[in-house]
Amino acid sequence: MRALPASAALPALAVAVLAAGALPGCSRDAPPPAYALPSEKVREGERVLHGRAGRSADLQVTVLGFSDPLTSLFGSHAEMRPKGRYVRVRIMAVNTGRDIQVFDTWKQLLVTADGRTLVPDVNATMVKRQPERLSVGAAMRAEFDLYYDVPQGVGARALRVVGSPTVGAVSQPDPADIPLT
């Protein structure tokens, strides 16, 4: 077999490299494959929020939807009315680490426009049967709602999320504020 002269080999090599880039899985610029997830209908009065995420430790939280105001809540066993008005925040929590992250509902705070922080409303959480604490396994994600009883006339500015300490951590992780407005 006879070798190609250098002047002929270089263009042939360039063509081969470009052709390989067009093959599935060979391009460095191609997006990775993604799961085809069924879409979820937006509930009445809910605003879809895009690009609203924060991370605390290995817990990545994305705000999916925001409902304000809700004047009452209906569950399978009760109807609840707030002292002010209910605010519902639909979130997706993803564990980006290799160990379990504990999502503790009571540590997730709503930051108001005047700087106050509010804890989730225990009665609304129970009536709507949302988790109090949830073990989010490695590479796992979960979607659910957080409910807050917000005083009338006070705006909601952000959701302050906090994950659980990672393995070997000696302190609580820093919280992350996710803007709602």
Rank of each mutant, 00 (worst) to 15 (best):
residue 3 A to I: 10
residue 3 A to N: 13
residue 4 L to D: 11
residue 7 S to L: 15
residue 8 A to I: 05
residue 9 A to T: 06
residue 9 A to L: 10
residue 9 A to M: 08
residue 10 L to R: 12
residue 12 A to G: 11
residue 13 L to P: 05
residue 13 L to Y: 04
residue 14 A to S: 03
residue 14 A to L: 06
residue 18 L to D: 02
residue 20 A to N: 03
residue 21 G to P: 00
residue 24 P to S: 07
residue 24 P to K: 03
residue 25 G to A: 12
residue 25 G to S: 09
residue 28 R to V: 00
residue 29 D to V: 13
residue 30 A to M: 12
residue 33 P to C: 04
residue 36 A to D: 13
residue 38 P to T: 04
residue 38 P to A: 10
residue 39 S to V: 09
residue 40 E to Q: 14
residue 44 E to C: 01
residue 45 G to K: 05
residue 49 L to T: 09
residue 55 R to H: 09
residue 58 D to R: 03
residue 58 D to V: 00
residue 59 L to T: 02
residue 60 Q to Y: 06
residue 61 V to H: 13
residue 62 T to H: 14
residue 63 V to W: 05
residue 68 D to Y: 00
residue 70 L to F: 07
residue 71 T to G: 09
residue 74 F to C: 14
residue 74 F to P: 08
residue 80 M to D: 10
residue 81 R to L: 08
residue 82 P to D: 11
residue 84 G to R: 04
residue 87 V to S: 02
residue 88 R to N: 09
residue 89 V to T: 12
residue 90 R to I: 01
residue 91 I to E: 05
residue 91 I to M: 07
residue 92 M to W: 15
residue 95 N to W: 08
residue 96 T to G: 09
residue 96 T to N: 11
residue 98 R to A: 14
residue 99 D to T: 02
residue 99 D to N: 06
residue 101 Q to F: 10
residue 103 F to W: 13
residue 103 F to P: 00
residue 104 D to I: 12
residue 104 D to Q: 09
residue 105 T to M: 07
residue 106 W to K: 15
residue 106 W to G: 14
residue 110 L to F: 00
residue 112 T to A: 02
residue 114 D to N: 08
residue 114 D to S: 06
residue 117 T to W: 07
residue 117 T to Y: 03
residue 122 V to E: 15
residue 126 M to I: 03
residue 127 V to L: 12
residue 127 V to W: 02
residue 128 K to L: 14
residue 129 R to H: 11
residue 131 P to K: 07
residue 131 P to T: 08
residue 132 E to P: 01
residue 133 R to P: 00
residue 133 R to V: 15
residue 134 L to D: 01
residue 137 G to C: 00
residue 139 A to K: 11
residue 140 M to A: 15
residue 140 M to V: 10
residue 143 E to A: 15
residue 146 L to D: 01
residue 149 D to K: 06
residue 151 P to C: 04
residue 151 P to A: 07
residue 151 P to G: 05
residue 151 P to F: 03
residue 152 Q to G: 03
residue 154 V to Q: 04
residue 155 G to F: 04
residue 156 A to R: 01
residue 157 R to A: 14
residue 161 V to S: 03
residue 167 V to I: 14
residue 168 G to E: 09
residue 169 A to V: 14
residue 170 V to H: 11
residue 171 S to Q: 13
residue 171 S to H: 13
residue 172 Q to M: 15
residue 172 Q to C: 07
residue 179 P to G: 07
residue 179 P to K: 10
residue 179 P to W: 15
residue 180 L to M: 07
